[in-house]
Write a protein that binds this DNA or RNA. Sequence first.
DNA 1: CTGTTAGCGCGTTCAC
DNA 2: GTGAACGCGCTAACAG
Lengths: 334, 334
Amino acid sequence: MTVTIYDVAREAGVSMATVSRVVNNNPNVKPQTRKKVFEAIERLGYRPNAVARGLASKKTTTVGVVIPDISNAIFAEVARGIEDIANMYHYNIILCNADKKKDKEIRVINTLLEKQVDGLLFMGGAVTDEHLQAFKTANVPIVLCATTDENGTIPSVDIDHEGAAFDAVQTLIKSGHTRIAMICGTLQDPSNGYARFQGYKRALEAAGLPYDETLVRIGNYRYESGVDAMKYFLELETVPTAVFSATDEMAIGAIHCIQDAGLKVPEQISVISVDNSRMASMVRPQLTAVAQPMYDIGAVSMRLLTKLMKKEAVENPRVVLPHEIVNRQSVGSK
Amino acid sequence: MTVTIYDVAREAGVSMATVSRVVNNNPNVKPQTRKKVFEAIERLGYRPNAVARGLASKKTTTVGVVIPDISNAIFAEVARGIEDIANMYHYNIILCNADKKKDKEIRVINTLLEKQVDGLLFMGGAVTDEHLQAFKTANVPIVLCATTDENGTIPSVDIDHEGAAFDAVQTLIKSGHTRIAMICGTLQDPSNGYARFQGYKRALEAAGLPYDETLVRIGNYRYESGVDAMKYFLELETVPTAVFSATDEMAIGAIHCIQDAGLKVPEQISVISVDNSRMASMVRPQLTAVAQPMYDIGAVSMRLLTKLMKKEAVENPRVVLPHEIVNRQSVGSK
DNA sequence: CTGTTAGCGCGTTCAC
DNA sequence: GTGAACGCGCTAACAG
């Protein structure tokens, strides 16, 4: 039924070892023999069985990718970066959505390891002891991608979320704003949630501004929750003159909420966010945001993983990619 | 180093066959024995090797997914539908971007087949003879996902692109518009490009409206190309009163271009599109669009593939999912 | 209910 | 430069 290396060997009149050499580009084969083998392969339509190869060689040229949600534009961008580099180094990726749920994450990590992936890229919520435990039993390299662990013991690629938030809020402060609201992600989320909230508070503090908890709303990263949060802010006795959103989507929701209320951005209220997804330039006014290089985070983490898998030396196993403010039209001076 | 089924057998004082039975939930094991085995597994930290299992059983519980570009919101949504259902049936997916490039598509199809995937989901550009050839040599089921082949010989899940476009344009016509422009995808793209263009023409024809080729611009599905196309339309001697865009993104570009020119949507110019991505409700005015159920396309095609892989009978191997108009605010009457 | 025995398709020594 | 033989870790009959 299926044609094996053995069939090719017989067809070409050589041993299967020789066919294996040809297929794997081993130079120790006479050109003439090589040609015979190639012809036999062609004639029989032989397709090497990567599973058998994986068992024999203990390498699958496949890496596992744990991602929160591929339908989220931010993560999809990271995934594309990962896949492009994986492809470049002849790896394939098995993709698993885990929605930042710990149990689901642990489960997919284990099935990925059962599938004998050569490495693992983990993008999730908090890295707990259970995660660490699962990672430890893996005897393949692991890279955290756009997520960090407290102890900092695992190789990772991320941006400085706290710093990015700090910079965003400082931009607002420099423009003269003093009453600045924040639309935050859940504080359970270490990077997108907690760290950005910390950055917000630190910026306030650095400027000698008071922290007012009525100016902070927790959203779920989505457009609607940005709308809801802003609706709340607009009903405050003294409405904030600027809002910092933890994501573009929520920021866009806020902008529309403001506009629907008959106010103008940035004339009456300024808006800034962290992400700089493609959507940022697809709103009016265009969104001023701190850019997270998502594609690069994916690409760099995959590149790092390839080095680890090849046991190459890596200079810095914990890379922090730079962020930058992209000034567009949603921030005005007060 | 790595603990195998054999180690577990020794540790539990049973044969490896019994361990295999326990691991695979074979009911023919005495509960007491089962318990002993589980304890040994726990004690040794045994993790079954799916590659070896795949070689022996000739099943990998892995399916290949060829996708144009995971960073495109539309496809990311499909991918999520695929993965959710795959997960439900205990399959994993290997994801490959192929950018609708024929050569890349053929290449990844072959490596996916080498990896012995149990099935293949193909989402790409045109399905050529070369594709058909590659599919034929695969001895696993294949489902076309959001793409179609001319002959209609391969199982597929898609919407009626031509009909969706027809309905969109007809909506415009019913609102009294007679000068309707189209922002089109490349005509080489059978579904998103050509079919939608055909639907546009047919709707015009059905209403007795003349087809005017100066009213058609080719875009690349992206925001900027929508802006560019609209810019061109606005410079025409008689500006169209409505525009039909093949995608949401281009439609949003068009809307902003109109607004930036000081015109209003839908008062002066109406805009409608096909897609209904999440972005459609994230613009002002909110976009009226024909909804493509992308998540469902992914989910249904994966479900179909599971049936094919289990050799279950399938009633209809070529499913066409319904589309519907979602009336929001970007279409006005003339 | 449990154990024995063959392979699954290929990489990899080690001889020749 | 080439072949023979073993083993990767597991499933799947077949006995018992």
